[in-house]
Simulated assay, not measured.
Amino acid sequence: MKGLHLTADLYRCRCDEAWLTDPQKLGAWCVAAVQAVGLQAVNQLFHAFPATAKGKGGVTATVLLAESHVCLHTWPEEKAVTCDVYVCNFSGDHTAKARGLMFALVNRFQPEWTEQRSLDRGEEEA
């Protein structure tokens, strides 16, 4: 189950508001980004949350991959996004693809700053 888990917290995103509030727009772009880096989407779920007193509701976008998953959560009232990319390296090393996908996600939202983390998952083979 060796793999790579990448996370990014994006703050003060300068993208168009629709990227934070429109589940169809964000979802279609996520699927295209997955394909562009050479990963394989096998299912997807895009959900919009209702507006609150603070403004428009955010979106959760999840793309299940043959290699694992990508998931985003948006907070338009905060202009913030969390990104989660996990790939298992069972059938091959997908590390570069995961890093390329995270790079594309961060660039899509144009944050003023990010906090990114990388976690190697599973044990090394003996």
Rank of each mutant, 00 (worst) to 15 (best):
K2T: 14
K2C: 08
K2H: 15
G3E: 08
G3T: 06
L6F: 06
L6K: 00
A8Y: 07
D9Q: 11
Y11V: 08
R12Y: 14
C15Y: 04
C15N: 00
C15K: 00
C15M: 03
C15R: 02
E17D: 15
E17P: 12
A18W: 09
A18N: 10
A18S: 13
L20F: 05
T21N: 04
T21H: 05
D22A: 00
P23Y: 06
Q24R: 06
K25G: 04
L26V: 06
L26Q: 10
A28E: 14
A28V: 00
W29M: 00
W29C: 05
C30Q: 09
C30F: 01
C30E: 03
V31S: 02
V31M: 02
A32Y: 07
A33Y: 01
A33M: 01
A33V: 01
A33C: 04
V34W: 06
Q35G: 08
A36Y: 00
V37Q: 08
V37R: 09
V37K: 05
V37Y: 02
L39K: 10
Q40P: 03
Q40V: 14
Q40D: 15
A41C: 06
V42C: 07
V42W: 05
V42R: 04
N43A: 13
Q44L: 06
F46H: 07
H47C: 11
H47W: 09
A48N: 07
A51S: 15
T52H: 07
K54H: 01
K54R: 15
K54A: 14
G55F: 07
G55P: 01
G55R: 09
K56P: 14
K56E: 12
G58P: 11
V59T: 09
T60N: 11
A61Y: 05
T62P: 02
V63K: 05
V63F: 01
V63D: 01
A66F: 05
A66N: 04
A66H: 04
E67W: 01
E67R: 03
S68N: 12
S68Y: 09
V70C: 01
L72Q: 03
H73M: 02
H73N: 13
T74Q: 10
T74D: 08
T74I: 05
E77G: 12
K79A: 14
K79T: 13
A80F: 10
V81K: 03
T82R: 13
T82K: 10
T82C: 14
T82I: 14
D84C: 04
V85C: 11
Y86L: 13
C88S: 15
C88Y: 15
N89H: 11
N89C: 15
N89R: 13
N89D: 11
S91K: 12
G92A: 12
D93G: 07
T95R: 11
T95A: 15
A96F: 03
A96V: 10
A96E: 15
A96G: 05
K97A: 14
A98N: 07
A98V: 07
G100A: 05
G100F: 03
G100K: 00
L101I: 09
M102L: 14
M102V: 09
M102S: 01
A104T: 13
L105P: 01
L105N: 10
V106L: 02
V106M: 02
R108P: 06
R108W: 09
R108E: 11
Q110Y: 00
Q110W: 04
P111C: 01
E112V: 15
E112N: 13
E115Y: 05
R117C: 11
D120M: 04
D120N: 12
D120H: 08
D120F: 02
G122T: 04
E123D: 13
E124C: 06
E124R: 02
E125T: 09
A126H: 00
